[in-house]
Amino acid sequence: MIEIKNVSKWFDDFRVLTDINETINRGQTVVICGPSGSGKSTLLRCVNGLEPYQQGEIIVDGTSLNAPKVNLYKLREKIGMVFQRFELYPHMTALQNITLAPTKVRKWSQKRAAQKGMELLERVGIPDKADAYPANLSGGQQQRVAIARSLAMEPEYMMFDEPTSALDPEMIKEVLDVMIDLAREGMTMLCVTHEMGFAREVADEIIFMDGGRIVERGTYNEFFTNPKTQRAKEFLSQILA
């Protein structure tokens, strides 16, 4: 379970996040949407300790990020993250991208890591690309490798930061399909995305953020058919237009 309690973050006098409260239970899929600059990406990065925050507390499975000697590396083994621009290591093949962390962090043997890597590549649909370099992969393929890379560490939570925003339309589906499968298999997921089709399929809760605050939340149906706030209404009319 991830608990976010009254988290605020600011740069000088610019408030990036204000009083964020949220609980994500095991097996849930939570979708965060909102206009750009609303702090969605920053929130994700606070959860796995990539970004610090000044106020509040984030607790992951009982471990508070505020604790003085918190081991962020161990925490990050539990929480996988997929980035908008894929961020594959350009000097390594797809398989090497996936096996790097298990071999260096978990000290797996090359054999075991490669086996796991191939399994994951199969799962995301591109086992034939194991020895390809990122430059020779399409955006959709790269993102799927990125997902496999995160899954290699057998995380308990997965976070997605606009995973399809940098993709050409034809490739969005292949990535969303992988994500939907993951959600249906019971992975706990926190996704920042504009893909409402995805949200409709698997989201247990939708959070709408604006200006660093959670402005509205609810199930897909509640949010879409009956938005309560003005900002939410404006946002919906824009993305559905």
Binding site: R76, F83, H91, A101, R149
Partner: peptide
């Protein structure tokens, strides 16, 4: 090297030094 590339490594549990050794330095060198 973009910050997010380094973040991608960190988010798989890699430490600063391991990231420097397997990602940052090799890429910069090339």
């Amino acid at each position: 090297i973009s910050t997010d590339l380094v973040n991608a490594s960190y988010s798989t549990g890699m430490t600063y030094f391991k990231t420097a050794r397997y990602i940052t330095v090799p890429i910069a060198f090339r």
